[in-house]
Design a protein around this nucleic acid. Structure first.
Lengths: 338, 338
DNA sequence: CCTGGCACTCAGTGGTGGCGAGTGCCAAAG
DNA sequence: CTTTGGCACTCGCCACCACTGAGTGCCAGG
């Protein structure tokens, strides 16, 4: 087990390195932090920390930098979550208020998060599977052509065009609309399938085909559109990465363009509480030198989607975590109000 | 006026520089292109071209590179639009077919364009102002709360929540819905204001307030949502820029994140025909070392939106223009079919 | 007007040496 | 057993320098 002071040394190394972006040596450490011991002692501690794999030297005769394992320990045991300052909180509120629709909320959130953390922000749209139905609308566009519009409690709207096997009258359609809504409004998407399974039976023979088609499309929409959407922003912050960077930045940009990768990334995050994935803990290769801080957010007590930031492993974890958490809370609040 | 041969020399310089990314010298030129003259002659021509500002030397004793003005001349007079190969055309078709909705079409287009040109692709969503109304739907969510859903011929859906001054009955709402649709379906958005201006008059006194509110919101949606959306992709291609690049790439990424900038960029493009803006011709400072190739696309003969690519001024103009034009045509076709 | 020749310029390359931050080890002190 | 000062050593970084070669401008002759 590592002594208290060695942990303190590790913390100091992480803090310094995050600040300066340069390998930190024993002398500099004792100067900047009141460790109360001499450089030589620190050197011994460093040797021990290196032995355990928490820090490493880029090359002999250079200072030490934290390894992924070092950051992990730092995040788990040495760092808290830094709460935002009051002006920062106020800024968040001002920035998010005045959003007019869901797109706007997500867009503002992404910009806010990117600005606050000076990193790349990723915000997932509220997931269909976990939200509830606000309304289902059926529009007859042509005798045998119906448009299905699905509205969620988070303000998301999905529409599908349906070619019906047979024409359906306005009355039947209105009937179907009414029954459908009375059954599913306010219910969770996951419950919908059972709720509508027997609905076709109560219709006239001639309409059953169409009703089934409509219901099938509805269910399909629920499944298909579980394919989540998300928005990213702040990619320009990637340029602050390293000075070496074409090599560093390229795979990251590539990874960020693959929605699938990002969705998996957020999906891996715990449903509640904050998740921090550091460097190689990320499955995707392109993100091996980045860390992801993600958290769920929702209109109620339950998470309907996730948001987070992607940045260099060498990031200000307490600050980033604080910002991410704060933003998630406010967004949840906004969603609950609307 | 420049002699024919000098133009030929300029063309050769542009082609070589685009290929090698290195300043091109007189000797190399005569070797790679059958100009039929000696390096010394080419040198004289180069001196003349430099005098006129079409090319420049990064430093004494280096080859020449084209200036923005040089590229301009190249694009205007020396280069055609390179048509795509048959396999490329087929690839486009395969890639775009099978798109399920508007988001999907735009998403696929962006990826396709980025891949084809190996540059950053920008695709604007079909604009509301130039499209026509397919359907207007009114949903009563609560006694004094109505949702307005607007569906365009390009498949775009906009919705707005309306708080009514007074409750409105289902019958009146259905009446309004019917009249509204009979007046505006199939009409262009720009015509809608006149078409509905007197609609409130024909309603009962008690409903007039609500009807006016609904109409006002409808008009507002038309105006507000002229705030266009767009999608970008292929930012990872920016890493192919230069080797110098933190400095180059940063302002570009920043510019690309500002939708406003991009919209202005596309907006500046001519409505019909292809527009190429080279280097400093772009108003935005961050894009001073990039060129933009943009073109309108639409479901009919008229452009409903624009798409294009952003890349280094040193780009393969004929190839890029060919790809952009071809993609725009296919997308227009897809939109017309749906 | 074109061409070959010639002197000149200058970015890039590679080698050299000094500097200094940082290390590991050790022996002595606490 | 831990801490500390001392010391020799390593090695990345930088400044300096000379060399090379691609490319140029100019000029005199075809």
């Amino acid at each position: 087990m590592l002594s208290e002071r060695r942990l303190e040394v590790l913390r100091a190394i992480v803090q310094d390195y995050v600040g300066t972006e340069e390998p930190v040596g024993s002398k500099a450490l004792t100067e900047r932090h009141r460790l109360g011991v001499s450089p030589a002692t620190v050197r011994n501690d460093m040797a021990a920390l290196e032995e355990e794999g928490f820090i490493a030297q880029p090359h002999t005769s250079a200072g030490r930098i934290p390894t992924d394992k070092g950051y992990r320990l730092f995040v788990d045991r040495l760092a808290g979550v830094k709460p935002l300052s009051t002006p920062e909180r106020r800024a968040i509120q001002n920035f998010l208020d005045g959003a007019v629709d869901l797109d706007d909320v997500v867009g503002r959130t992404v910009r806010l998060l990117a600005q606050l953390t000076r990193q790349v922000a990723v915000v997932q749209y509220p997931s269909l599977t976990r939200s509830t139905v606000r309304h289902v609308e059926l529009l007859s566009l042509a005798p045998a052509r119906v448009m299905l519009v699905l509205i969620t409690d988070t303000g998301r709207v999905e529409q599908r065009m349906i070619d019906c096997p047979a024409p359906i009258g306005e009355t039947s359609l209105a009937d179907l609309r009414a029954r459908l809504n009375s059954r599913v409004v306010g219910r969770r998407f996951t419950d919908v399938p059972q709720l509508v399974s027997d609905l076709a039976d109560s219709f006239e023979q001639e309409d059953r085909g169409t009703v089934s088609t409509v219901l099938a499309t509805l269910l399909e929409t629920l499944v298909e559109e579980t394919e989540e959407r998300l928005m990213i922003g702040g990619t320009a912050n990637l340029t602050r990465f390293g000075h070496d960077f074409p090599l560093t930045i390229r795979p990251v940009l590539e990874a960020l363009e693959e929605q699938v990768v990002l969705l998996k990334l957020l999906g891996e995050a715990k449903d509640s509480g904050m998740t921090v994935r550091i460097g190689h803990e990320n499955a995707h290769e392109g993100l091996n030198s980045t860390s992801v801080v993600a958290v769920g957010y929702g209109s109620g007590d339950e998470a309907v989607a996730k948001l987070g930031v992607v940045g260099p492993t060498r990031m200000d974890y307490p600050g980033t975590m604080g910002a991410v958490r704060a933003v998630a809370r406010y967004v949840g609040q906004i969603l609950a109000e609307s």
